[in-house]
Amino acid sequence: MSTYNFDYLDELEAEAIHILREVAGQFEKPALLFSGGKDSITLVRLAEKAFRPGKFPFPLVHIDTGHNFQETIDYRDKMIERIGERLIVGSVQESIDQGKVVEQTGKNASRNALQTVTLLDTIAKYQFDACIGGARRDEEKARAKERIFSVRDEFGQWDPKRQRPELWNIYNGKIHKGENVRVFPISNWTELDVWNYIRRENIELPSIYFAHEREVITRNGQLMAASPFLNMDDEDIVFRKQVRFRTVGDMSCTAAVESEAVLIDDIISEISSSKISERGARMDDKVSEAAMEDRKKGGYF
């Protein structure tokens, strides 16, 4: 019998491909939620490995807060062009214009929470029965308990107390009409695993992940990119700084970190020695100890 190399990245990759193919096999109308961030970019590569030379059995869906980093949108459009798959955009601005959600006010206003409504509307409009997302269990302690196939009721709610047992590598995707399943193929990956995989696969990323100089302000002890989407006043002093972003969320709630990391190797060594976790740069999680649990119960990604 031949020997073979099967290291931890191979194993994580094989598991994720298996999960993606289960989605293809079990659901009528799945979708892949694409944010333009490194995790969903990784999902796209995994989907290529799962389904090529065939087409993806699902479209990509971007929930657009309207407060994006331009670099992310440019990246998205280029990538769609390259892979030749269908993109559906759900617009938070449209939800605001239709009066379905109300823009937050005040200094810490963000569209992050509003995304949930647009997401649920988009799911309802296209009747998606499964939405693939790039969430990982190492990100946050409520996520650490979430299943790989995570059932949401018709109001998009996650009920942590009624999760289905998930045994071996068998995924139960049976649902009633109106319900849908959020599927997380890279649940078992850590932030470092994702970066190591991106390096190994030589995957291109939006430029904001790498150190660059930009105008920032300090808000609640964190560096925020100065932008028209941030409610700024005279107290906010704009200055230039060499920074990078560890996630690419809504500009109004995604903090930058000071960084010299211009190459992927620099980023990996920076994360290996880092003392702040990735979601620590997300102000939306800091609201309370149960912030993520509450948002997930409400239908968030």
Partner: peptide, 28 residues
């Protein structure tokens, strides 16, 4: 560190499976 859900923190017990990750230079 391992008690993730609100009810678990309130009651000081583990209700559901929580997955945790760490690595050394030898293994994940």
């Amino acid at each position: 560190l391992t008690d993730g859900l609100r009810a678990e923190r309130e009651q000081g017990i583990t209700i559901d499976v929580a997955y945790k990750y760490f690595q050394t230079d030898k293994r994940k």
